[in-house]
Nucleic acid binder design. Structure first.
Length: 503
RNA sequence: GCUCGUGUAGUGUAGUUCGGUCCAUCAUGACGGACUCUCGAUCCGUCGACCCGGGUUCAAAUCCCGGCACGAGCACCA
């Protein structure tokens, strides 16, 4: 061993000195040529607002754009009028959500439904050039041909015949499902997914944005391929479920004589707390009244996370730390929450919230002196927020019943007490032993409040007394010994409403 | 069935291109302690992993071969 080392010392000293491994920071470099600037894209279906899952796409693409001084195209892939039809409001929601997350608007916004002439023209070129054709086989018939690696009879027809069928399709003379346009690849390709794949189909359902103008609509693989080229996209970052899309589209690019963008992939992400939510599923549940709306705290939408008090930067931090891997992963909200806690802790004032309160009458007779009836407590223990909360303490205080039951406790920043029944004797003003420190409230400082917390698909509510000191609706507070919550509503009358964020 | 991809601690992640202090990084988590005063804050500490089996080599998480497991695509959805 030593001999080897000595020999290496001679021949390859660099093999011996190796710096300690470190966790890489940020995203790894983009492949390919980035010297001419990079253009990325984020291409959601506007069939609902963005979800937590989508935020990965926003985070990764906008971060890369930032790293390289590049651009991001926000493209709405809204060419399906039937299975996942667009929701008109979603275009605006998504643009806003993108901006919220990325910290700036997308450099360019495109709607596929407004770009139909471009796609149809390319389709026609494809048919005229005989690298695409109109196929009138049924889906089932073609499936058999694909499995048997056999050419479809429509494949070898003259371009002019295909072209006249194409015109008939566009004129609305062919029924839905009776014809599609296919890209000619090779029916003997080992990967069945690539064999003469479908590029456009007939849809008579009106499009919510452009109406009934078009009868033939491109499928994702075709529309996206053409548009990526039109926009000069240099790098595509997409889910690895789209790997075969890359291969299909590369075949199409070869027909057109184009070079395909660099492509990177991420694996599937599941969040423990949010099982199988789909955009269309959420929409149905909302319409059925199971949720109050897209921003219901139980939903994994960006609207809900934003409303609960998550910072855009926390989400960005999280996705960038995760990086780009092709592994299918299952993560916990706890991890995202810890990123958020890091971001907001220093900015969040403390308040006392006593759940399930009991009132104790204070007996100060055996402890002379003390701080008097006015006390001050820091707004933030670390001093990152200056200033104090001012409390006036009267004859009775509120303590969480479970804490009162412990008997010997310390009212934080105030006094050691012995609680029994509805009264409490002050034993010492200074901390005299290691009894538990609990949060509390002078009876006069509390106002009724209800803390709403999502738990296993339901909302649970806990009522209590919230410290009534410089409260502001919309603010996030750290409730001492409870956790972070947003003050959602602060009505003149009736209890305030707190929305749980995380611990 | 065919095609493609992925397997590092409870959960994620670095390292794998070009084998060498890698007795494997960092975060999160759990546990414990500290901070004379919240905590799910902060600080410190502890726990915990290279899918399996062969092979090549002085040396393998890293290279080769063979398994296994999981995921995805094969939609007139995106």
């Amino acid at each position: 061993m030593d001999a080897v080392r000595a020999e290496l010392e001679q021949s390859a000293p660099e093999a011996l000195k190796r710096r300690k491994h470190q966790k890489a920071q940020g995203l790894r470099e983009l492949p390919g040529d980035t010297s001419g600037g990079v253009v990325l894209r984020f291409a959601p279906n506007p069939n609902g607002p963005l979800s937590l899952g989508h935020s990965r796409g926003v985070a990764i693409n906008s971060e890369y754009a930032k790293m390289y001084g590049g651009k991001v195209v926000l493209r709405f892939d809204d060419t399906d009028t039937k299975v996942k039809p667009p929701v008109p409001d979603a275009y605006g929601w998504i643009a806003d959500e993108y901006e919220w997350l990325a910290g700036r608007p997308a450099d360019m916004v495109i709607r596929a439904s407004e770009r139909m002439p471009v796609y149809l023209e390319h389709a026609e070129r494809m048919i005229a050039g005989s690298f695409g054709y109109v196929c009138s086989c049924s889906a089932a018939e073609f499936r058999n041909l694909r499995e048997d690696k056999k050419d479809c009879p429509c494949r070898d027809r003259a371009a002019s015949d295909s072209l006249s069928d194409w015109k008939a399709m566009n004129a609305g003379e062919i029924a839905e499902g009776d014809a599609v346009v296919r890209v000619k690849t090779d029916m003997t390709l080992p990967n069945p997914a690539l064999r003469d794949w479908p590029a456009l189909r007939i849809q008579y359902a009106p499009h919510p944005m452009v109406g009934e103008r078009y009868k033939v609509w491109p499928l994702l693989d075709f529309q996206s391929a053409i548009e990526d080229h039109e926009q000069g996209i240099t790098h595509i970052v997409r889910g690895k479920d789209l790997m075969d899309s890359t291969r299909k589209q590369t075949l199409l690019y070869e027909h057109f004589g184009w070079a395909y963008p660099e492509t990177l992939y991420w694996g599937r992400v599941k969040v423990h707390e949010f099982g199988g939510f789909s955009t269309s599923g959420m929409r149905a549940s909302i319409e059925a009244g199971e949720y109050s709306g897209w921003d219901d705290a139980r939903l994994p939408t960006l609207k809900a996370l934003q409303r609960r008090g998550f910072r855009a930067q926390s989400l960005l931090d999280f996705w960038i730390d995760l990086g780009l891997t092709q592994k299918d992963i299952s993560i916990s909200m706890q991890t995202i929450e810890s990123f958020n806690a890091k971001r907001i802790d220093a900015l969040t004032e403390r308040r006392s919230f006593v759940r399930d309160p009991v009132m104790l009458a204070l007996d100060r007779s055996s402890a002379p002196g003390g701080p008097g009836s006015q006390i001050t407590i820091p707004k933030h223990p670390g001093g990152t927020i200056e200033g104090f909360r001012e409390w006036s303490v009267g004859e009775s205080v509120a303590v969480q019943s479970a804490d009162a039951a412990a008997g010997s406790i310390r009212l934080k920043e105030y006094a050691d007490i012995e609680a029994s029944g509805e009264s409490a004797a002050v034993g010492s003003w200074d901390r005299s032993d290691d009894r538990p420190v609990v949060h509390w409230l002078p009876a006069s400082m509390g106002r009724d409040a209800v803390l709403h917390r999502p738990e296993g698909g339901r909302m649970v509510s806990e009522s209590g007394l919230l410290e009534d000191f410089e409260l502001e609706a919309g603010e996030i507070y750290q409730l001492e010994r409870v956790g972070f919550a947003k003050l959602d509503e602060l009505p003149e009358k009736g209890p305030a409403s707190l929305l749980w964020l995380h611990g």
